[in-house]
């Protein structure tokens, strides 16, 4: 069988195919409504729901809920009749499968292990995702776009959230499920998995580019300067930009909010940056310390 068909029809992967279809569908629906509302707002017209009348819960809403419940129940039943949940061999601690994959919704995090050490990819970054999500209502001080789809009124928050949600979370999951084979090597869907394949990819550390041993003191100092200037520079640059172009925004945000937003943002952006460093420049570590490496 075609390896691609084989991968997407694996029982557990059908869920991911369903996820891709559902997420794409709702993404289009959300943005379509957002743009539609933007046109209404631009024309000074009320968006849907602004001048609303009340209807009885019983039965209009209860009817919708019952119908949705029926559709979901029928859908899950059909899915359960057509596809059997797999049961592999009994657990065997002496036989490690290759690749050993985490549950599919954590594969984005497992994918990060290519670019970061486990303490970052597996602990710090996931914790920061949760913290960042919790912080959203408190750091987004834009009063507009409350209770209706819109893009124009909250461009940046939607762009940043969508980048995190669709690219860093969902796309990495899809990559982890469909494009990662033995040894966590990249396999195109039409490629056969080869368990004996070894890719020798000499990686180096950032300071090696200028000929300095990364584990030496000068390497440590240069690494610290690079990481430090990314964090400090990333912290200061937006401040200077807004100070010049939009000082009002800075006053509105205040110190704590500003620091939180920028810290979360530069941490998030460090992921694609490190990916490029690793994939394009074959750089493994930017900064090596005796305790941890970045």
């Amino acid at each position: 069988m075609n390896p691609f068909i084989e991968i997407i029809t694996q029982p557990d992967n059908i869920a991911i195919v369903i996820m891709v279809i559902m997420v794409s569908f709702y993404m289009v629906w959300a943005f379509q409504q957002a743009f539609q509302n933007d046109r209404l707002l631009a024309a000074g017209l009320p968006v849907d729901g602004e001048n609303d009348r009340f209807i009885d819960t019983f039965k209009p809403l209860v009817r919708i809920e019952l119908l949705i419940a029926l559709v979901v129940m029928v859908g899950l039943t059909v899915w359960s009749i057509l596809v059997d949940a797999p049961l592999e061999e009994i657990a065997n601690p002496t036989l490690t499968p290759n690749p050993a994959k985490a549950p599919w919704y954590f594969l984005g995090l497992q994918e990060l292990l290519v670019y970061f050490d486990p303490w970052l990819a597996g602990v710090v970054l996931p914790s920061l995702i949760v913290v960042g999500l919790l912080a959203i209502p408190y750091i987004d001080i834009n009063p507009k776009g409350n209770g209706y789809y819109t893009f124009a009124e909250r461009k940046w928050s939607i762009i940043i959230f969508s980048f995190g949600f669709f690219v860093l979370w969902l796309l990495l999951i899809v990559i982890g499920v469909f494009f990662r084979g033995p040894g966590w090597l990249w396999y195109w869907p039409w490629q056969e998995w080869d368990h004996s394949r070894v890719v020798f990819e000499p990686t180096r550390d950032l300071t090696a580019l200028i000929g300095i041993e990364s584990r030496s003191l000068p390497g440590f100092i240069i690494g610290a300067i690079v990481v430090g200037s990314y964090m400090v520079g990333g912290m200061i640059a937006p401040y200077l930009y807004w100070k010049k172009n939009n000082p009002e925004l800075l006053t509105q945000l205040g110190m704590i909010r500003y620091v939180t937003i920028i810290f979360l943002f530069i941490t998030m952006m460090s992921i694609p940056i490190k990916m490029v460093l690793r994939l394009v420049f074959l750089i493994k570590y930017v900064w090596i310390t005796p305790w941890f490496s970045v």
Binding site: M22, V23, Y26, A30, I136, P143, N146, G147, F165
Partner: peptide, 15 residues
């Protein structure tokens, strides 16, 4: 996850 996306897109996390 889609529910979270919807709540975000309609700005329903705001005050």
């Amino acid at each position: 996850m889609i529910h979270m996306f919807r709540v975000f897109m309609t700005g329903s996390y705001k005050a």
